[in-house]
């Protein structure tokens, strides 16, 4: 009994895996992805020139730009690719033949998500490689005396912490995009996701809203939003890393746990909505 149940579970995961691999395959062949990745890599490489213009005074600007570019292009990939792949599947009705196969709707949602996260992971890895290459070259070109003036080495491994949190944040955004694309059209889903991304970065301000307004109702509403909307500010440790301030592991663990919990809730909501939906 338990054996067949666990066998069923493994088989079920395998189907999720097949869907995920398919998403990955489809997305690496998508022109949008290439454009975005090439653009991001160019931007990171170009940041070296920027560093030159500002008199080579600091490596910080390059670090900052590389991290910001990864975060921004990751967002674009999550939104345009993520939403494109899911709503296109519904709108163009390729989902009809897929759901006639032994794929349940929860498996479909989880497989899409896993495939998108896999795509993101590969892209973020490419951007990290570009980032470290640029910094490595720069460090090699400068004299040792000059390098001694930097707060942290150019290829500071601590930056990986910032990249990691950016990745967790992108996982969250992807889950948001997936959720919106299960309930609305592609364009609306993209707008809502980007809106939520922006709101998410100012979320902490909502908490202090009551000190700004008098109305208790407005304050309560703001507080409600504060708890429901994702809080994205904690995922941004760029400034700390660039200025060689420590980012404790405990902080990373806690922020990751928050991200993972939020992703789980969004996936659950997506599955619930998607499982009842009529495909027109």
């Amino acid at each position: 009994m338990t054996e067949s149940a666990s066998g069923g579970f493994v088989a079920s995961l395998r189907v999720v895996g097949h869907v995920a691999v398919h998403v990955f395959k489809e997305s690496v062949r998508d022109r949008i992805l290439y454009n975005l990745v090439i653009f991001a890599v160019l931007l990171i490489a170009g940041s070296y020139l920027m560093g030159q213009i500002t008199a080579g005074q600091d490596v910080k600007i390059i670090k900052d730009l590389g991290l910001a570019a990864t975060s921004l292009f990751g967002l674009f990939i999550a939104v345009f690719l993520g939403i494109g792949l899911v709503s296109k599947e519904v709108q163009r009705r390729s989902i009809y033949s897929l759901l006639a196969k032994p794929v349940t709707r929860p498996q479909f949602v989880l497989g899409k998500y896993a495939g998108l996260v896999l795509t993101l992971a590969v892209n973020v890895a490419v951007m990290i490689a570009a980032h470290y290459s640029v910094l490595g070259v720069m460090s090699w070109l400068e004299s040792p005396e000059f390098r001694a003036g930097w707060e942290a080495p150019a290829t500071d491994p601590a930056m990986l912490k910032a990249f990691f949190l950016i990745f967790v944040q992108l996982m969250l955004i992807t889950a948001v995009a997936l959720f919106f694309s299960t309930v609305s059209s592609a364009a609306l889903a993209a707008a809502l996701t980007i809106g939520l991304y922006i709101v998410g970065h100012f979320n902490a301000d909502l908490r202090n809203f009551e000190t700004v307004v008098d109305s208790p109702a407005a304050a309560a509403l703001a507080r409600g939003f504060y708890y429901v909307l994702p809080n994205l500010a904690p995922f941004d440790v760029k400034t700390a890393v660039v200025h060689a301030q420590p980012v404790p592991w405990g902080y990373i663990a806690l922020t990751t746990a928050y991200g993972v919990a939020y992703v789980a809730a969004l996936l659950l909501a997506s599955i619930v909505v998607f499982s009842r939906r009529d495909f027109k």
């Binding site: 398919h22 395959k25 489809e26 009705r93 390729s94 009809y96 006639a100 032994p102 794929v103």
Partner: peptide, 30 residues
């Protein structure tokens, strides 16, 4: 669904797959 097949009205699949890859993908799901 393991035992049935379905051809939708005016079917449409994935732009970036070949016919062969599409069928291999579906066969894998079984």
């Amino acid at each position: 669904r393991h035992r049935i097949g379905y051809l939708p009205e005016t079917p449409y699949f994935y732009d970036n797959l070949t016919a062969e890859e599409l069928l291999l993908y579906f066969a894998k799901l079984f």
